[in-house]
Simulated assay, not measured.
Amino acid sequence: MQQHHHCFLSKYSLPEWQAAITTNATIHKFKRGTVIFRETEAVTGFYFIHSGKVKVHKQWGEDNRDLIVKFALAGDILGHRGLGQDHFYPVTATVIEDVEACFISAEFFHTTLLVNHELAYHMVLFYATELQKAEQAMRDMVFMSAKSKMANALLKIQDIFGTDESGAIQSNLSRQEIASYAGTTYETLFKTLNEWIEEGIIAVSGKSITIRDQAKLRALLQ
Rank of each mutant, 00 (worst) to 15 (best):
I68Q: 06
E107T: 06
F8M: 03
I202Y: 03
H122M: 14
V69W: 01
L78W: 04
W196Q: 02
I21G: 03
I157A: 04
L67R: 14
R65C: 08
D159G: 09
H110K: 15
T34D: 15
I169S: 03
V91N: 05
S13A: 13
M123P: 01
F46H: 07
T129I: 08
N64D: 14
Q176H: 12
G206V: 06
K191L: 07
F37Y: 15
F109W: 00
A215W: 00
S171G: 07
N24S: 12
D159N: 10
T129H: 15
S13T: 10
A74P: 02
I202T: 06
A153K: 00
S205T: 08
H50W: 08
H5Y: 06
V99F: 03
G183E: 01
H87N: 09
Q59Y: 09
K216E: 07
T23Y: 14
D63I: 09
R139P: 01
R65Q: 13
I49K: 00
R139T: 08
S105I: 01
F30L: 14
M150Q: 01
E187W: 06
C7E: 02
A203C: 10
Y127K: 09
D66Q: 12
E130M: 13
H122E: 15
I96D: 02
Q170F: 04
T92C: 07
I36D: 12
I21M: 08
L9F: 05
F126V: 06
